[in-house]
Design a protein around this nucleic acid. Structure first.
Lengths: 216, 216
DNA sequence: TGACAATGTATCTGGCAGATGTATCTTGCA
DNA sequence: TGCAAGATACATCTGCCAGATACATTGTCA
């Protein structure tokens, strides 16, 4: 069973051949990165393995003189493999949301702390939303005719729709928490510290079928 | 730097003391499981380590005769640690959404395949939404007076809000994809197979700050 | 009472995230 | 033009975690 890293690589090469590992990293950052984070540590070993398996092959685009950089393209086998995987049902990944976890146990630290988290959440998502909307505008202008465009755009719209909902919710949450704060005097603040510059995005996943509904 | 597994354990014990590892697993499934999936393989070693660190301690509730089952409660140190962590800024986890990945590369397999994925997505989320709303009703009836209730309810509302938005989006996506299908004759279908019974949920995360907006 | 199933409890292992390490290119200034 | 300092391109290494698996205990039916 191949890892999903394999398919990210194949997918990227299906859109644009002759890419080096490094270029793929960059491409990922600028596109799928918003819903798929790849492990770069996994990237280079995987390129080697895929080559060994005959799914991709070293290739060279009009020699640009760049030093020891290896570029790859997809083979016919690779293309077949990608299509096969695309047609398989997707596998939901386990959810992991530290923000909600802290909110869930929030009572232990008091509403003041929760308020600070929600504010941070709100700020991050506002920025992320603005960014993704901008990417949407630029991308549409540049790629509207690209054969992949409508698929790309769909994932983008997903991100926008979801972030908008999350922002709406955060306003409500803030109201609730601020009321609680008033009710019981002021709680402590979040111990502020570097908030790794403007980051936020999306990424959905799925939970597990719960039998017991003990504890909410 | 302790793993977040530590804090899930501390958090659960802060709500309900005298739990065994097994009970925690069950509790997780029925509550935080919707946005936080724990590694059960990590659970038991962590219980031992936390005991060694003096953050939790073996405890026994009115002997229920159950065989070799160890129960734990939190120590004062553990409680302090939990509060400290709660006040720290949350760390967004990297996004990983295979559904969106398949949609992004969807062009390779044709709109028919994508349509099937979106339909599955829609079904799963409808179920998940119904389930979580039900849990909300039951939980509210049972716990409305519980001191943690309002925090729990907020995370629940988050889930509901987000799933609703995702369902809305999926209707739009379906329309777009079905149009594409008509335009260019029928694409192939998803290779159906067991869809691990009614599962779905939420889980948000964040992307990374992208400089290059190459692609899309 | 014994056999088999279901459930409770714990450990083991391969794959991955992110930190770190090294080469190569660019720029500013003498 | 030469070269030092930093930026950027590129690759690897390590500790942690998800999920599979193993083992124990309790339930149940003949």
């Amino acid at each position: 069973m191949s890892s999903r890293t394999d398919y990210v690589i194949l997918g990227l090469l299906s859109i644009e051949p002759h890419q080096s590992g490094y270029e793929m990293r960059k491409t990922i950052q600028g596109s799928v990165g918003y819903f798929w984070s790849e492990s770069y540590g996994q990237l280079y070993p995987t390129l080697k393995r895929l080559t060994a398996e005959g799914l991709i092959a070293p290739s060279r685009r009009a020699a640009k003189g760049r030093g020891g950089r290896q570029e790859y393209s997809m083979t016919a086998a690779g293309h077949a493999r990608l299509k096969e995987w695309l047609a398989l049902p997707y596998r939901p990944d386990p959810p992991r949301d530290e923000f909600l976890l802290k909110l869930f146990f929030g009572r232990e630290a008091g509403p003041g702390v929760a308020v600070a988290h929600v504010r941070r959440f709100q700020e991050d998502y506002r920025q992320a939303l603005a960014l993704i909307e901008e990417i949407g505008r630029v991308g549409t202008a540049k790629n509207a005719e690209h054969p992949h465009f409508r698929f790309w755009n769909l994932t983008l719209e997903y991100g926008v729709a979801r972030m908008r909902a999350e922002l709406e919710w955060s306003k409500h949450a803030l109201k609730v928490l601020e009321e609680m704060e008033e009710e019981q005097g002021t709680g402590s603040r979040v111990q502020g510290t570097g908030r790794r510059a403007g980051k936020a995005g999306m990424g959905k996943a799925s939970g597990r079928g719960a039998k017991g509904s003990k504890n909410v």
